[in-house]
Design a protein around this nucleic acid. Structure first.
Lengths: 335, 335
DNA sequence: CTGAAAGCGCTTACAG
DNA sequence: CTGAAAGCGCTTACAG
């Protein structure tokens, strides 16, 4: 029923090893035998069993990619780069979606190791995670991107998030804003943690007061954001602008402000972070901090493949990319 | 170095087969031996090699998912459902991105078969593809969703696209529009082909003229759309509305109209198709035909797993889901 | 240039 | 209830 290397060998009148050798392009095989074998392969429609091959070569030509939420554009846009680039090297990618939960991350990691993937790329690691570090210590090929762990034991490539926040705050300050609210997702992610630090640092440098009343971090569903915005806008000393630690949050904020009858940027300025595709849509046209996601994903993959092929000696490395301020039309100078 | 079932056997003082049996929860194993083995497993941090297991069980607990473009929200939102639901059954998913090209689709299919995935889900098949049909004929578990091939030889679950177009055209007609332009992606996809047919059919039923001048199908980058719109709007008998066969196209259209100084819906009405997440964003608020993507993906996966477990006898099946008109604010009655 | 043999790390009849 | 042995489908030293 199923065609194996043995069937090909019989058909071509050669040994099993010879078949294997033409499959793997051994240079020693003579032209005639190679052709006999190739003919048999074509005739019997033989496709080598990659599972069996993996068992002996110890390579699966598969890598794992762990994301927080594949339906979030940030992750799907970076996944695209990883999948496409990996394909060029005939590598497949298994995707795991953690829903941003630490336990799911750890499950995914263990599962992928059991699957014997050649390496793992983690786009959404939790600061507290230790499993990635354990793997890195055991010299299992693993690279983090976007986020890293507190212990910094695993190689990573990220954007300079503090710097990003400074660009955002500076921009608002340049426009005359002195009260700048802040919203971010959970501080258990290094991205949000650093953007938060950068926000505070930038305020301090500009001699602006850090007011906990206009700062929120945690779950960022639209209900929670609404409650926060209502509170903030009812303050007597209310802010004139807001820096959101992601474009998704920024867009939600703008929607809610619209519902509340506030126009952006006339009544209120908003800056996002990420520069996802939709941010440049003319209807949204969000001022944001751009991270070069594609480059980040490309580098992470390239480095991972280097590690897999033992071409990387200085581990763990840390690559930090520059963010960039992109001014569009959700920020405006204060009157 | 690497811990195997043999190491566990030695450590626990039992045979290799016994270790395997506790790993696979054979009921015959006595409590004491089971515990000895479990202890050894824990102590040596043993994780069974899933590649070796697959070679003998003939199951990889992996399925393939082939999409046209993972960064397109339609695909990433359905991928999310597939990945999450599969995980609950301890199944991993390998994603392939074809960039909508037939040759890439066929490469991906052959590769996945070589990888011995247990089954394949194709979200973006080409009408002309025959590889999927060949696989289905050989009883390889495969289910198409969203799009199907012309030969209908492979089971699929899709939306009633003709019906969707009829809902869109009817809605515009109800608002008084008599000249309705149409844009869609390549007709080599059943989705666009059927939406196109539905569009013509609906016009015919309403006794409206089908004017090839205001119809476009093919590549849908924003340049091509711009050229088409310019041409259409310079017609003396210019249309008052447009039906776009996807939300992404509709959003691009609205952007271009804005650039050209036309307001939607005051000057021009637009209907999309898909109801992707961003369509309901207050800044876009697109009137569209909703397909229940999540349900579609869920059913496709469920059916695929049924086929894998030989619980599906009537093959190929065809499941057709109902589309729904969602009226938002990009359509308006004509004065 | 080709082939016989061993082995990758599991599972699964089968025997006891 | 447990174990010896064969086998899944390949690749890879090694010998010739």
């Amino acid at each position: 029923m199923k065609v194996t290397v043995i069937d090909i060998a019989k058909k071509a009148g050669v040994s099993q090893s010879t078949v294997s050798k033409v499959l793997n392009n051994y240079p020693t095989i003579s032209k005639e035998t190679r052709e006999k074998v190739l003919d048999a392969i074509k005739e019997l429609e033989f496709y080598p069993d990659l599972v069996a091959r993996s068992l002996v070569t110890k390579k699966t030509k598969t890598i794992g990619l762990i994301v927080g939420d594949i339906s979030n554009p940030f992750f799907s846009e970076t996944a695209k780069v990883v999948i496409t680039d990996a394909r060029e090297q005939e590598i497949d990618v298994i995707i795991s979606d953690t829903d941003y939960r630490l336990e799911n991350l750890e499950l995914a990691l263990r599962n992928m190791v059991g699957r014997r993937v050649d390496g793992i790329l983690v786009a959404s690691v939790d600061r507290r995670d230790t499993v990635t570090t354990d793997l890195a210590k055991k010299e299992f090929p693993i690279v983090l991107f976007n986020r890293h762990t507190d212990d910094k034991g695993t190689p990573y490539v990220v954007t300079d998030n503090e710097k990003g926040s400074q660009l955002a705050v500076q921009h608002l300050n340049d426009l005359g804003h002195r009260r700048i609210a802040y919203i971010s997702g959970s501080l258990s992610f290094s991205t949000f943690h650093q953007r938060y630090n950068g926000y505070k640092k930038a305020l301090a440098e500009l001699n602006l007061t850090i007011d906990p009343m206009i700062v929120y971090s945690g779950q960022v569903d639209s209900e929670k954001i609404k409650v926060f915005l209502k509170k903030v806008l009812s303050l007597k000393n209310r802010p004139t602008s807001l820096y959101a630690a992601s474009d998704q949050i920024a867009i939600t904020v703008i929607d809610i402000l619209a519902e509340m009858g506030l126009r952006v940027p006339t009544d209120f300025s908003v800056v996002g972070f990420d520069n996802i595709d939709i941010a440049s849509n003319p209807h949204i046209n969000l001022t944001t901090i751009s991270q070069n996601k594609q480059e980040m994903a490309e580098i992470a993959l390239e480095k991972l493949l280097n590690i897999i092929n033992s071409k990387e000696d200085e581990l763990p490395f840390q690559i930090i990319l520059e963010p960039e301020l992109i001014i569009r039309s959700t920020t405006k100078s204060i009157q």
